[in-house]
């Protein structure tokens, strides 16, 4: 546990040593505002809830999370510091978890900074705060899923732009796995059970129920399993190709 904390601490501090952290947070908050108030019609709906706010989270994460994830390993590779990290007395899992947790914690900080909208909705009306907490939790878990995908892709690559684009595409497929756009592609040649399994991987479906305040253990487990699976892939990719 010690090594994970030390690696995560170093990583997190390095975000704030460069403009990256500030630019990300400012853009994240600005876009959240734009989406909820203009596209989501936060006031016009006349309802005291945060549905218009949470509805846009998946779309915002689709581009912002890969931007955080792309540098996780690609940059270590490019600068050569991966050789230093991998010859320190830490296990591959400690390194992978340390870096992942740092990035996740950073997104959590950005997400926490959206609290004024929660204050606003409580000032204007009487929302169900239980639903809001569940939705925040779901949002954070979904961000973790995107992040784990991005971390794995970043480990396979030394080019950050390639890592970004590939991550966006894979995240997009996972997000819409339950929708006709993705399912139609498979429906011609895959049996129904497989199709059903694919549609079960949809981030949006799982997030939608969480954002409505339905704290189903299966949805929580889904995101945790997605994170675990992609981090496991991340460890394998690094073990095989750390020195390439």
């Amino acid at each position: 546990m010690g090594a994970i904390r030390i690696i995560a601490g170093r990583e997190l501090r390095s975000y704030f040593a460069t403009p990256l952290a500030y630019v990300f947070i400012v853009i994240f908050l600005a876009m959240m505002g734009v989406f909820s108030f203009y596209l989501g019609g936060f006031y016009e709906r006349g309802q005291a809830d945060l549905t218009p706010f949470f509805n846009f989270h998946p779309w915002l994460y689709l581009f912002l999370v890969p931007a955080i994830a792309m540098r996780l390993w690609a940059e270590e590779r490019k600068s050569g510091s991966i050789e230093l990290l991998m010859t320190l007395p830490v296990t591959m899992w400690q390194a992978v978890l340390g870096k992942f947790l740092a990035a996740w914690l950073f997104i959590a900080v950005a997400l926490t900074l959206t609290f004024p909208i929660w204050l606003t909705v409580n000032y204007l009306g009487d929302p169900d705060n239980g639903v809001i907490v569940a939705a925040y939790l779901g949002s954070l878990l979904m961000a973790g899923g995107f992040l784990a995908i991005g971390a794995c892709i970043s480990a396979a690559n030394r080019n950050q732009v390639v890592a970004f684009i590939v991550t966006v595409v894979i995240c997009f497929l996972f997000m819409l796995a339950g929708f006709p756009l993705v399912l139609n592609f498979f429906s011609g040649w895959l049996p129904a059970t497989v199709l059903h399994a694919i549609s079960g991987l949809s981030f949006l479906t799982h997030f939608n129920s969480l954002s409505k305040g339905v704290l189903d253990i299966r949805d929580l487990l889904f995101f945790l399993l997605v994170i675990a699976a992609w981090l496991y892939a991340n460890v394998i990719v690094l073990t095989l190709r750390k020195a390439d």
């Binding site: 390095s14 040593a17 600068s79 050569g80 050789e83 230093l84």
Partner: peptide, 16 residues
């Protein structure tokens, strides 16, 4: 743990 290793080119974390 018993090893001190200097990789080729002495890489480190540039922003630190």
């Amino acid at each position: 743990r018993l090893l001190g290793y200097l990789p080729e080119g002495a890489p480190s974390y540039g922003e630190m």
